[in-house]
Design a protein around this nucleic acid. Structure first.
Length: 562
RNA sequence: GUUCUCGUAGUUCAACGGAUAGAACAAGAGCCUCCUAAGCUCUAGAUGUGGGUUCGAUUCCCGCCGGGAACACCA
């Protein structure tokens, strides 16, 4: 039941639509001031009347209603007090009838490609990769929840001068046994070293560029080495990141794959006159759009990230015929994607407006930046291990006699890390504080998991009662806020979708769990009073359902026991 | 230099232009013979700075100070 909608329909005001009213409602700062409030200042201005006058008019039209207990006028606001008993009844019946909240189907099977995570060869994923992967995975699940058909694309970073550097470094300093033994770690060391030396040594840099050129020309020796590095990198990222997260992708094709189409792109850009020669390179001038100049072919003839992205987008559209294609990357790529989208549009691709770029803010460590090139990093696998260890310690301390379950410990540790990555706005820069990320108290993943387990525990102990739900007879204040919070779930999913913002869900679940824990503390759920027990169990069941559903979207498991 | 972003308790984060700026962690004080104390109460603590628009500004506009990012051959 959408209470705002219902309230708005009851209010008649000249030149104000129901939608505008729905938007206008606010929640009063304190529950004593009512459940909803309607500020009348804007209406007053339009009608050139006193806000209090309008508010009084509205308030007096709202009496004697099954939803509304009373309405008061305070300083230009109409404060609306709902009829707790009937409203609670309506909300719970609504839940009970559908057994669960009917998922909104706004996607209607539309195809959404989501390009996220984008593994890089020879880069051991750090906490920043973890974070952006978790965010992308969450957005993907949210779209699925809302009825979209989602394609998860991992656009492999497996092409470009940097890999010329890697191969060069291996030939110079690496050895087969070491790479076989230490895998991505050994590769990353080579990568860091070669980057450092290239900064001082122009000749080496040129050698690396030439090695990349050999890759573009499919030189067998170079390619065999590189394919090896690539397989090894993917295997390790899968094992260390995607398997713990239970995440899989529909498409792993990366830059190397799509590079076969760049000639066509360059051809099109040139023949259409979009791209012009400049200082030996081929560029698209986007100055008139405030997007600078975009290089699409370097003066040595090799292609760039942008060139490949153009080819990739065109091929993806051809293959998936997506209705929306979302790219999730760091903010530093803002200009890049603005250029990409504009070029695709200028090339005459009508579907360019289906592309959407979402950004992750930068993640900093308390004492500096994350950088895989400089080796200053908090590795995802290490942090997962630390979080898991902490969960192990706590479980052993809390229940020393029970059989120890390592998998559960990892789920709890991951729950903490995932929640910490999702709880604040994704586009804002943030600081990664390890102690906070692996904290299990307060606004954390384990708090939500614990609350879910607590619901489960109560329900296990519940007696079998008739499922007569015709009348709950609820009038207690204790459950009021909790039920109101439950009722918001669908709106929250919709808001998260509209804002493309996982933290909306994360914060909502904290609010819900908080209300439930208070409810649990203040009320005896299982009591001698059958009617009250029935009501409390109904509420508990729905809290458990919403927690489970919401946590699943975030990518966090919902344990029955903790 | 140009453009874009951000600045809120000791810390990490909230707040469609709305009422008394919310939480959590950390600090201090309480609550387990009672459905899981990974919980629940209570105390203390914040809008960088100067203007402007507005009935009303953390939010919008301008200046300043201070972070971060991008700005043609990296991805």
């Amino acid at each position: 039941m959408n209470i705002r909608q219902e309230l708005a329909k009851k209010i008649k005001l000249d030149n104000v639509t129901v939608d505008e009213l729905v938007q206008s409602f606010t929640i009063p700062p304190s529950i004593e001031m009512g459940d909803f409030a309607l500020p009348c200042f804007a209406f007053a201005k339009a009608q050139r009347r006193n806000p209090n006058e309008i508010a009084s008019e509205i308030a007096s039209s709202l009496v004697n209603d099954e939803l509304i207990e009373r309405a008061e006028v305070v300083n230009g606001y109409v404060n609306i007090y709902l009829n707790k008993s009937t409203v609670t009844d309506k909300i719970l019946s609504n839940f009970a009838e559908t057994k669960e909240l009917k998922p909104l189907n706004i996607g209607d099977g539309k195809i959404v490609c989501i390009d996220f995570s984008s593994v890089n060869v020879a880069k051991n994923p750090h906490i920043g990769h973890f974070s952006s992967t978790v965010i992308g995975a969450c957005i993907a699940r949210l779209y699925e929840k809302l009825g979209f058909e989602v394609k998860r694309l991992n656009y492999l970073g497996d092409y470009g001068t940097q890999f010329g550097k890697l191969v060069c470094a291996y030939i110079k300093w690496g050895n087969r046994e070491d790479v076989q033994k230490r895998g991505i770690e050994a590769l990353q060391e080579l990568y860091i070293r070669v980057n450092a030396e290239c900064e001082k040594d122009e000749a080496l840099l040129q050698e690396c560029r030439d090695t990349f050129k050999k890759m573009e020309e499919h030189d067998p020796f170079v390619m065999e080495l590189f394919e090896w590095f690539k397989d090894l990198s993917i295997a390790e990222v899968k094992k260390n990141l995607f398997e713990p997260l239970k995440l899989s992708f529909d498409d792993w094709r990366g830059e190397q794959y799509y590079s076969q189409f760049t000639d066509d792109v360059l051809q099109q850009l040139t023949s259409s006159g979009l791209a012009k020669e400049s200082q030996g390179a081929l560029v698209v001038d986007l100055e008139q759009y405030g997007l600078g100049v975009a290089v699409v072919r370097q003066s040595n003839g090799t292609t760039l990230y942008l060139t490949r992205d153009i080819a990739t987008a065109i091929n993806r559209y051809g293959e998936y015929a997506f209705d929306v294609c979302i790219y999730i990357t760091g903010v530093e790529q803002k200009l890049h994607f603005a250029q990409l989208f504009k070029i695709l549009e200028l090339m005459g691709n009508g579907w360019a407006d289906k592309l959407l770029h979402l950004v992750n803010g930068r993640l900093r460590l308390p004492d500096g930046k994350l950088s895989s090139r400089k080796g200053n990093q908090a590795l995802a696998k290490d942090i997962i291990a630390v979080a898991t260890q902490k969960a192990c310690d706590i479980i052993k301390e809390r229940s020393p006699d029970k059989a120890f379950d390592v998998d559960k410990a990892q789920q709890i540790g991951l729950g903490a890390l995932i929640f910490s990555a999702l709880k604040s706005g994704m586009s804002k820069d943030s600081v990664f504080v390890l102690e906070d990320a692996i904290n299990f108290d307060g606004q954390t993943g384990p708090y939500l998991m614990y609350t879910h387990a607590r619901c489960a525990s109560v329900l296990r102990k519940a007696p079998v009662l008739t499922t007569d739900i015709s009348n709950y007879g609820i009038d207690s204040d204790a459950s009021w806020e909790l039920v109101g919070c439950l009722n918001k779930y669908q709106d929250i999913l919709l808001e998260a979708y509209q804002q493309k913002e996982p933290s909306v869900i994360a914060r909502y679940l904290i609010e819900l769990a908080g209300h439930f824990n208070k409810f649990y503390h203040d009320n005896r759920i299982l009591s001698d009073d059958e009617a009250s027990t029935k009501k409390n169990l109904t509420i508990t069941r729905f809290v458990k359902y919403v927690l489970n559903d919401g946590l699943a979207i975030l990518g966090i498991s919902s344990p029955e026991e903790m």
